[in-house]
Design a protein around this nucleic acid. Structure first.
Lengths: 139, 139
DNA sequence: TTGCGTGCAAAGGTTTTGCATGGCA
DNA sequence: TGCCATGCAAAACCTTTGCACGCAA
């Protein structure tokens, strides 16, 4: 794993601080921007995007998209998570996003690769459906 | 399956014609717009987006996104119920779309429902990755 | 001092919305 | 005739880029 290079700036530090504090959650550029502003340390939008982009390139963040009309999400990837991959589940009803780490689901990847020659990219894949709460609500 | 409602207009017909002719392929609003213009029957951008949106709502099209900076893709969903039991694999390299029917993959649905309370909608879900040919090409 | 990082503003592209007009039923 | 559909233009939105200045090393 390459380390995040370049200078050590206050902005970069603040951004990393927020991301690591929200490990396992989905963070958007907007949330990050608003949080930093609310904290009294506003950071320019361009800087935020540039930093996020660099972190994705360095493999420290994962970037993915739910829908073209909503903004991109970023998620901090702890080193241990490299092995613990997970899938994203998006509820079409409540719009909530879940992630699932599960051996059975990891088996999908192996199965598809072995039997169908297809290598899934989990970071780009989102499974759509209905979450438990929304299913029960529909009854 | 709800049928596409509303009036039968020339624009709507043209759009459906293009979409059905490209079944199994990814169509963007821009491609559609340019095609219609090239055919001598230009359709306003707003109309295209409104029609596509309505078709997605009616379950006739599927909409999905690869990246937040690129535009959304639409795909015609043949009405056959058979397709509902397929998972869709999209190769990010060659852009090809594959349909996979597989007991193992069907097991995913049951597993997620039983163990995670999440009910997948296969028709809305696309698994992204690399197909066999493109993987071998990259070596 | 050197040159990367930052902020501001403007540009870029896709998608949505408001409103008057046109066309289907 | 009554409404929905359309088209145009403008707005909204997220993201990127250009450029001058600031700050880390």
């Amino acid at each position: 794993m390459k380390q995040s290079g370049g200078y050590k700036t206050k902005q970069k530090e603040k951004i990393m601080q927020y991301l690591t504090a929200h490990e396992g959650q989905h963070v958007t550029a907007q949330e990050l921007s608003r949080h930093l502003e609310a904290e009294g340390t506003p950071v320019g939008t361009a800087t935020i995007y540039r930093q996020l982009d660099a972190l994705v390139t360095d493999g420290i963040l994962r970037k993915y998209t739910i829908d073209s009309r909503s903004c991109a999400c970023y998620e901090y990837l702890p080193l241990s998570a490299e092995c613990k991959r997970h899938f994203h589940l998006k509820c079409m009803e409540c719009e909530q996003l879940f992630h699932v780490t599960c051996e059975h689901l990891d088996g999908i990847e192996a199965h598809l690769l072995e039997h169908h020659g297809f290598q899934i990219d989990q970071s780009k894949t989102v499974l759509y459906g209905l979450c438990k709460a929304c299913r029960e609500k529909q009854k």
